[in-house]
Design a protein around this nucleic acid. Structure first.
Length: 271
DNA sequence: ACTTCGACCTGTTGGC
DNA sequence: TGCCAACAGGTCGAAG
């Protein structure tokens, strides 16, 4: 479900309710997510104060004095802030209850998400330390991408969706950014000039920033923490628009399958 | 070192 | 209306 803008929307939504609050209890109803929720998570985190609510890639983490609670939403995960009055539903797997009687509740029907613990420095976690740069960070540049893409045979779409290269670019925004940059998603990553990669870097940053400002993209079920949809879906240029007119040239948008994911593009505008 | 592909799950959608 | 296949916003880890 969520790409970087949706995760950032969730993070901003929960932050005001959690910052500087103390974790009172953690209720785990379903341990079996992508990785099991650690049995000792309540023992580690109860009584501790939430110092920061952060995001790295598509991970949200709550920074405590003794470590971090790491949350990933997978494909279908979502976070809500609620109270005891709202009974948990079928796929509400964990409640983190804090000192203002609010509850951070994770729902994840497909269970591709996870809730993990990392003591001390978050960057030492094995899932975090292998990640590439944040796309909105200044160190994510055309020169960086050009260097990494050298002699790479994979498609440019697979390349920008690879979290070792750059994080946060999922299936929607990969298609969107490649359209904005005028690059054919099938093109080999190692076969693109520095100046065209500059356009791509600019397009990735712009696309993600615009989507964050719209509260993310709601295609079917993404909502912010109080249930409101994201409005970026109305501004998608190619994703989900196969057969419809390209907004730039009028040609029909095409759809095909790449790495088992749907790609959308304009064969006239993207070379 | 790089690339591809299966696996993990449930819910929704579209065709017959 | 019902059934079933195909598909959905992620990404690790094994295999080639």
């Amino acid at each position: 479900m969520p790409e970087l803008p949706e995760v950032e929307t969730s993070r901003r939504g929960i932050e005001p309710y959690l910052l500087n609050k103390t974790i009172k209890t953690i209720e785990i109803r379903q341990h079996k997510l992508r990785w099991p929720i650690p049995k000792n998570l309540p023992a580690l985190a109860e009584g501790k104060k939430i110092r920061e609510v952060c995001r790295r890639a598509k991970y949200i983490y709550l920074k405590l004095d003794n470590g971090n609670i790491i949350i990933h939403l997978g494909m279908s995960g979502s976070l809500r802030i609620c109270t005891k009055k709202t009974p948990p539903e079928k796929h509400d797997h964990i409640d983190i209850c804090v000192s203002n009687n609010k509850i951070l509740r994770l729902r994840d029907p497909r269970k591709f998400g996870c809730v993990l613990w990392q003591a001390d420095d978050i960057n030492e976690h094995k899932l975090i330390k292998v990640l590439g740069p944040e796309p909105l960070d200044d160190i994510f540049t055309a020169e960086y991408l050009h260097d990494k893409a050298h002699k790479r045979q994979c498609s440019i779409k697979a390349f920008i969706m690879n979290s070792h290269i750059v994080v946060g670019v999922g299936n929607i925004y990969a298609s969107e950014a490649l359209f904005r940059a005028g690059i054919n998603p099938k093109r080999k990553a190692g076969n693109i000039s520095l100046s065209r990669l500059q356009k791509l870097v600019d397009a990735i940053k712009l696309t993600l920033e615009l989507a964050i400002n719209e509260g993310g993209t709601t295609l079917r079920d993404f909502t912010g923490i109080s249930g409101q949809p994201g409005y970026f879906a109305q501004k998608l240029l190619v994703y989900g628009r196969d057969g419809k007119e390209c907004m730039q040239c009028g040609e029909a948008i095409k759809q095909f399958t790449q790495q088992a994911r749907s790609t959308y593009y304009c064969s006239r505008c993207q070379r």
